[in-house]
Amino acid sequence: MAFTLATWNINSVRLREGLVARLLQEEGPDILCLQECKSPVEKIPRDQFAALGYGHMVARGQKGYNGVAILSRLPLEDAGDMNFAALGHARHVAARLENGTVIHNFYVPAGGDKPDRAINEKFGQKLDYLTEMRDWFRDSRPEKAILVGDLNIAPREDDVWSHKQLLKVVSHTPIEVEHLGNAQEAGGWTDVTRADIPEGQLYSWWSYRARDWDAADKGRRLDHIWTSGDLKNAFHSSRILRAARGWDQPSDHAPVFATFDL
């Protein structure tokens, strides 16, 4: 069984329904995982996506914030969700394919502006969320699993435009990188994108604040695809669709792709 999977923080699935449709039509991934849908599940435009061949959806939503969805051309069933850090947010959903592969779609908290939990509650929530992810992976080690999503951390020095300048900026601080690394290690996860593209600067997010995001190119790799240890030889063809960041009224994230042979 071969399939291509994409993950994309869409920053409102209803506002950017047309961009989702464009991606499905032009790139044709078999599975598309969306984060920050900002919509109750019943208001996600699933009929429009079904008309393009994506008749299967598993999602968790809430009005105006967060939200995760898995759209698929392949049959899948709901495999539950986790409420890490007791936030009550729609930040995780899992789906199971017919071959038993489980896809976890995550939207990790961004963490606010100040990397200090003593003065910034949101940063503390982010660290707690990652800690509980670590504990869950350690207690029930993933098998035949793929994890994707906006993890809101750029872990490597070449995952950001300037390692030195971002060391004290939320998303690249040493404590965040350590927490993400601990979660990855606890689950025996492989970073698919970097296994396929091991060298060079690589970004999936560019701020809306940049006057010309493309020319400035001050990006970060916040969006990830991981695979459990038993599937570490089953992927190829990783890429980031940078061009989507330049589409009309875009998300500030670009879609990340990988193909799996299972």
Score class of each variant (00 low, 15 high):
Gly55Arg: 09
Thr4Ile: 13
Glu132Pro: 04
Tyr203Ile: 13
Val93Trp: 07
Ser162Val: 07
Leu74His: 05
Ile146Met: 09
Leu52Ala: 07
Ala59Thr: 01
Asp30Phe: 05
Ala244Leu: 08
Gly229Asn: 12
Val93Gly: 04
Gly88Leu: 11
Leu76Arg: 03
Asp212Ile: 11
Asn152Arg: 12
Met57Trp: 03
Ile146Trp: 01
Leu167Asn: 06
Leu15His: 12
Ile44Val: 08
Val169His: 12
Pro109Ser: 11
Asp252Arg: 02
Ala2Lys: 14
Lys126Ala: 03
Gly100Arg: 09
Val148Arg: 00
Pro29Thr: 03
Ala154Trp: 09
Asp81Asn: 15
Gln48Trp: 07
Arg242Asn: 13
Leu241Trp: 06
Ala243Gly: 08
Ser251Leu: 06
Phe235Cys: 07
His89Ile: 04
Ala210Asp: 13
Lys38Leu: 00
Asp116Glu: 10
Thr7Arg: 06
Thr4Met: 13
Val192Ile: 12
Phe49His: 00
Leu34Met: 11
Asp113Ser: 12
Asp139Tyr: 03
Pro29Met: 07
Gln165Thr: 14
Asp159Lys: 02
Phe49Pro: 00
Arg245Val: 01
Asp214Glu: 15
Asp150Asn: 10
Ala154Pro: 09
Ala183Ser: 10
Gly61Trp: 06
Gly246Ile: 10
Trp205Phe: 15
His163Asn: 12
Arg138Glu: 13
Phe49Gly: 00
Leu166Met: 14
Ser228Arg: 00
Glu42Gly: 04
Leu23Met: 12
Lys168Gly: 08
His236Met: 15
His56Phe: 15
Cys37Phe: 07
Pro109Thr: 10
Leu24Tyr: 09
Asp139Cys: 05
Ser204His: 04
Ala243Glu: 14
Glu121Leu: 13
Ser237Pro: 08
Gln201Thr: 13
Asp113Val: 08
Asp191Val: 08
Ala186Pro: 02
Ala110Val: 14
Trp206Arg: 01
Glu17Gln: 12
Val13Ser: 14
Arg221Gly: 01
Asn9Lys: 03
Ser207Tyr: 04
His224Gly: 04
Ala254Pro: 11
Trp136Lys: 05
Arg245Trp: 08
Asp47Lys: 15
Lys218Met: 14
Asp78Ile: 04
Asp191Gln: 11
Leu24Cys: 05
Pro155Leu: 11
Lys63Trp: 05
Leu34Trp: 05
Ser237Ile: 07
Asn233His: 14
Gln125Tyr: 06
Arg73Gly: 07
Ser140Trp: 06
Thr173Cys: 09
Ala145Gly: 03
Asn152Phe: 12
Tyr203Gln: 12
Ala216Lys: 13
Val148Lys: 00
Thr173Glu: 02
Asn9Tyr: 03
Glu121Asn: 11
Ile119His: 03
Glu176Asp: 09
Asp128Asn: 10
Ser12Val: 03
His104Ile: 12
Asp158Thr: 15
Ser204Lys: 07
Phe260Cys: 06
Pro142Ser: 07
Met1Tyr: 10
Leu147Cys: 14
